[in-house]
Amino acid sequence: MGITSSTALWYASRATGVVALVLLTVVVLLGILVNRRGRLPGLPRFATTSLHRSMSLLAVAFIAVHVATAIADPYVTIGIAAAIIPFTSAYEPLWLGLGAISFDVIIALIVTSLARARIGRRTWRAVHWLAYACWPVALAHSLGSSTDLRSGWLLTLTICCTAAVGAAACWRIVSSMAARREAERPARALSIGPAADGPPADRRSGDRALTGAGAR
């Protein structure tokens, strides 16, 4: 049982795939942390953004190797186009198609982030929302394309990543609802507190004018 170059490429593809998934998980977690203005213990605030960015570039690097080795491997027929055009691969079109989708989205995320200043905040944000869709698609691709993640310590790893992203996403949703109220918190203190002495003026154009008391 010699290790052929094909097997080496196949192992390389699977290994880099696993690492890419872990890195993507880290990127998503860091991205949520940036959005919630959190900081990593012991690090300055700008480090959260910096790490998110560097990790995403590292993830792309690993994905690139993952895709390249899979294409180069003669054992399975995967054309270059199949890496970016979903569902066009001869081998496992569905699962690889999902991989292609998530790869496309990642390219879009990175390109828009690099050109952020030029395209404006709103467009950039709209595209960046896709990241929440990208991760589950990448996970589905990983689970479907090979049996690696379905047993052993890789399964444990997958479960941990899923749990982490799930928990972080829930936190983001809850925290964002609370954040909308954060802007109102200082003002809410005024609403609850005593509104100065006297009867409340509860009409838009003023109390006395409306009752016609002043005009004769």
Partner: peptide
Amino acid sequence: KRDRFLPVPAAAGPAAAATETGWR
């Protein structure tokens, strides 16, 4: 006098201004 002279409506607070449910 203990009552109020200047007309001030009962303000609802910033929550009422944010009628749009955008994510932050």
